[in-house]
Design a binder for these strands. Structure first.
Lengths: 332, 332
DNA sequence: TTGTAGGCGTTATCAT
DNA sequence: ATGATAACGCCTACAA
């Protein structure tokens, strides 16, 4: 009824184990049998059952994608969706099961519980997206080295752990330099509204802003906006008047800042970070760093696969673009 | 190493099959052994391996959630994310694997191919969200009755198929009535910008608008906006001047219409449909129907489970709210 | 290089 | 009401 590896073996005139070896690209199979087996696979439209595979093998397993879109902001929902889509897409191509998990489901569980839970689900690798240092359980989980980990926007690397993301410091420098040169020039006074302080990306972006300040010699004031649109708004209402340029550690904060400026009836250039669609709805043409979240999701899945096949962890930088998003760009 | 059903059996002093029966709530087990087994399960922190279960059982399997966020609009990405989160959450509680799929991955495949693909993935049930009649393959898939189907916002029902969603006609009437009475009163001339014509929800919403027009006696002009923000904008630029109220078949179109009015420097009340966060960024206080997409996702998963346990298809209506979303509401 | 056979953790079918 | 045991589809020593 359903075509199995046995049918393929019979058709190709070989043993099931040989078929398995072909499927999993074992080296020790002759070109000749590879061809015969592949022919049989074609003819029978055989698709390996990934459930059976992950049950039997501790090598090829399933990968969980953990996100936390529960800030419930539009931005995070868009970004997390892209991560998940990318991972699912790449997983589909590689015939790897991708299991989405949300941080809210894990909250309150101990590391052991989470680990156990994932283990019995035959999960062998975890992709973590958009998490910050608050989520200690997850960091512990990584450290226990039970799984292969791919961390998006977190610095750790070890035997079983890779990380992936853009170069946040460099990107921050780039977008800030662009905004400054397009406007006030190096003499500008810059208000930097930073993201959550316990997050790696914030540290990096702040570092970038500082480095550029030294390089160009502008005056830099850093205030903690905690990735909150509301907070960015309040900060801008308080300090916005005394600065020439407002740089934000996220688009959402940039939007909050810009709205505040509008309400104050003054104008300063504002730049953000992420490149979310929502930026197009402000009608303000703000500069921002566009990250390709879907591409990152895909790459993360591929990296998970790489780790599962025994390769060792590494650090991956992905490209970004400097853009400004206009209403026309997001209008469908 | 990992606690299995065997360990539980040993501990409880029964056979593995008995443990399985307890787990799956078979009727033919004595209260006494049920208690003993549950005690052992507790003590050993046993969690059943759902992968093994779905391999072995053709009864209890995994459920796929198919969405299509590829319109790439902010609205759909928010909505689809909610559906997926809901399903994953409910699946997590019921220990059912939820596999997200995206329509783009299925595009170009024949029904047979899709069916086959899902089958070998041990998928027994499919939840389809936000699809319209264009996606004929998927409708064919439903008709073939190989899987249990839960359709969000599509009318079909049969032995293996349930549908779920709000009462779109009623909701459209409600929100329109509210908007009219708050403003011009029954003598108003209403411009209705409808969604894609081949979609069930559009039909229903249009029906609601028409019924209310008869009831209240207002003048109703219906124009096809195809769920497009851009099209709604163009329509409004062309016809907006001659109407008192603009009702739209989606929030996105409402936003497009409102932006057009603003550009024309005139004001008419605009109402939308869906209740997406983006509405808060327009600063216009538009009325809309808020659907609880996450709740719908959860309910859909539970319904899928119900169907998989042999129950027969049915139609489920979920509640909605009439709201207007302000910037303060979405500010985090 | 290829084949044999014993798992992987559950469920389901028969006996008992 | 309970227990043995053969699947489910694949992977992987180990043997040939």
């Amino acid at each position: 009824m359903v075509v199995t590896i046995r049918d393929v073996a019979k058709r190709a005139g070989v043993a099931v184990s040989t078929v398995s070896k072909v499927i999993n690209k074992y080296p020790s199979v002759s070109e000749d049998t590879i061809a015969r087996v592949n022919k049989a696979i074609e003819e029978l439209h055989f698709i390996p059952n990934s459930v059976a595979a992950s049950l039997s093998s501790k090598q090829s397993g399933r990968v969980a994608v953990i996100t936390d879109p529960d800030g419930q902001t539009l931005a995070s929902s868009e970004i997390m969706m892209q991560y998940i889509m990318g991972a699912v897409k790449a997983g589909n191509e590689a015939r790897i099961d991708v299991i989405p998990l949300f941080f809210s489901m894990l909250k309150g569980m101990t590391v052991e519980e989470i680990e156990h839970r994932l283990e019995v689900q035959n999960i062998r690798s975890i992709i973590m997206c958009g998490l910050d240092n608050d989520m200690e359980v997850l960091l512990d989980l990584v450290k226990r080295e039970k799984f292969k980990n791919v961390l998006v926007d977190m610095p750790m690397v070890d035997e079983n752990t890779s990380n992936i993301g853009v170069d946040h410091a460099q990107a921050q420098k780039d977008i800030l330099r662009k905004t400054i040169t397009e406007n006030e020039g190096p003499s500008a006074s810059v208000l930097y509204i930073s993201g959550r302080t316990n997050s790696y990306v914030t540290e990096e972006r702040v570092r970038g802003a500082k480095e550029l300040a030294e390089e160009l010699g502008y005056k830099l004031t850093i205030v903690d906006g905690a990735f909150s649109e509301k907070k960015a708004r309040e900060i801008t209402l308080e300090y916005g008047r005394n600065h020439d340029i407002i740089a934000c550690g996220s688009d959402l904060m940039a939007i909050g800042a810009m709205k505040a400026l509008t309400d104050m009836n003054i104008f300063h250039p504002v730049c953000g970070f992420d490149g979310i669609t929502l930026m197009g709805y402000t009608g303000k043409n703000m500069n921002t760093v566009r990250q390709n979240f879907m591409e990152i999701g895909e790459e993360a899945l591929r990296e998970a696969y790489r780790l599962m096949t025994g390769e060792t962890g590494r650090s991956i930088k992905v490209p970004y673009n400097l853009v400004h998003i206009r209403y026309e760009d997001v209008l469908a």
